[in-house]
């Protein structure tokens, strides 16, 4: 039911979907890094980066606005950066008198603010594109290939697998709590803070115990299938010529963007 809230993979058959997960992960990180090191206020370079993103959207047949629609996630955080508009460096652009506060936006501050905004917004779209076109298990395989320690990839694999099972359990606990608190109608809603915290804490404790006991049963299931403490995995992926081509091409485009940004 709620599972789709979690799974951002978008079933499609496209060039981008078929690319090796390692290539996609590497290009995503390179893209984000490239945005991060572009100097502030390089709107042309940022615009080209955005075009690249649109092209990626199109090639993966998600529809041009797909990643755009979901990129609102960064918005709340933008609040944090607003104060930078009034950076004392640079030329004042205006004076705003708000009661007893005087705010002075400067050209430097405004450029900085919008650069942060654009960087963040481009980066999050690229990350969305990555998970929309790559099955998460493939991504885990990619990290194994890229020599991420096995213990971490294993924890992540378990986390991914049981995320759904445990959030289901958490939701059931939540529903049970709601059902019970509804029966208390007439009394003060919600109850005391400590009481609410206690109920939530008990749910967390219960969830903990269930997870703990489940991990025992999983351990048994692993033992039953030959696990002796050393995990082995197969990696059914191999880089094709197309993958290499895509990697080199993307890096070339990113280098071009950097060139645009730094050579004036």
């Amino acid at each position: 039911m709620h599972i789709n809230v979690f799974d951002h993979y978008h079933f499609q058959d496209s060039l981008i979907h078929r690319l090796d997960a390692r290539v996609k992960a590497a290009v995503t990180v390179a893209f984000i890094l490239s945005n991060a090191i572009l100097p502030d206020g390089n709107w042309l370079a940022f615009a080209v980066a955005w075009l690249v993103l649109l092209l990626g959207n199109d090639l993966s047949r998600l529809g041009l606005g797909y990643t755009f629609k979901r990129s609102y996630i960064v918005l709340p955080f933008v609040l944090v950066a607003i104060s930078v508009i009034f950076s004392p460096l640079g030329k004042p652009l205006a004076q705003w008198h708000l009661g007893f506060i005087t705010l002075i936006p400067t050209n430097f501050g405004v450029a900085r603010f919008f650069s942060i905004l654009v960087r963040s917004w481009l980066s999050v779209q690229m990350a969305i594109l990555l998970v929309a076109t790559t099955q998460f298990p493939d991504l885990i395989h990619a990290f194994e290939h890229l020599r991420l320690p096995r213990i971490l990839t294993t924890i992540i694999a378990f986390l991914y697998r049981y995320l759904f099972v445990l959030t289901d359990e958490a939701l059931r606990l939540l529903r049970a709590r709601e059902a019970r608190s509804a029966s208390l109608q007439g009394r003060k809603r919600g109850g005391r803070l400590t009481w609410r915290a206690k109920v939530t804490g008990s749910m967390v404790g219960q969830l903990f115990l269930r997870s703990y006991e489940r991990s025992d049963r999983i351990y048994y299931a692993m033992l039953g299938r030959g696990y002796t403490g050393h995990l082995r995995t197969l990696n059914p992926h191999a880089m094709t010529r197309l993958d290499w081509l895509a990697l080199i091409l993307s890096l070339a485009v990113l280098s071009f963007i950097q060139l645009l940004g730094w050579v004036r």
Partner: peptide
């Protein structure tokens, strides 16, 4: 096991079925 959610502990079906033979 009784509960397949305990038995199927890998992200994909392939990984799970391959676990036994691999180990």
């Amino acid at each position: 096991f009784h509960n397949p959610d305990d038995q199927l502990f890998s992200p994909t079906v392939f990984d799970d079925v391959a676990f036994g033979p691999l180990h």
